[in-house]
């Protein structure tokens, strides 16, 4: 309590500040509300382009991706979220080449630091804007990012 104010000045000054507060809330009673009604607004809800939802490997219409299976992303990851399995095969002209077998991504231990995307020299992986990632079983969080039967995009 401020000692330098007299009893009545303190009383009326106090009441005045209370009234200012009441006026403020009364004004807000009639302002538009901020609530976003998710999930009813699913259709209008659009995430920002750069939002990091989960890691994906884009495939084109011919079921081709850009991953060469080098494993740089796996090395960059601080959490061991990514497991890249690759194999060597012989091309028609007899050279040994590496090719991706499976690209496993564990959403459950991902911390969205983007190091994998930055490490990738081919731009094969990216984050999408999906955010409804809840599942009932933890094992469902481990995703295989390369589609079945997909192959490397031919570079021109």
């Amino acid at each position: 309590m401020k000692e330098d104010k007299t009893y009545l000045a303190g009383l009326f000054g106090g009441i005045k500040t209370l009234c200012v507060g009441l006026k403020t809330t009364m004004r807000e009673l009639f302002t538009p509300k901020m609530t976003e009604q998710y999930p009813e607004n699913r259709k209008e809800l659009k995430m920002f382009d750069r939002f990091r939802g989960s890691l994906t490997m884009p495939h084109n219409e011919n079921n081709e991706h850009k991953c060469v299976g080098c494993g740089l992303c796996q090395m960059a990851c601080p959490n061991g979220t990514i497991t890249v399995k690759s194999e060597f095969y012989e091309t028609e002209d007899g050279k040994k080449k590496k090719r991706l077998v499976s690209y496993e991504y564990n959403l459950g231990s991902c911390m969205f630091c983007q190091l994998c995307v930055r490490a990738c020299p081919h731009g094969a992986i990216t984050f999408d804007q999906s955010f409804e990632n809840a599942v009932f079983d933890r094992s469902k969080l481990v995703r295989k990012l390369n589609h079945e039967g997909s192959k490397l995009m031919e570079t021109k």
Binding site: G13, G14, T17, L18, V20, G21, K23, T24
Partner: peptide, 8 residues
């Protein structure tokens, strides 16, 4: 208005 100047 609502908080900082409020006497309480």
């Amino acid at each position: 208005d609502i908080f900082i100047n409020n006497v309480i």
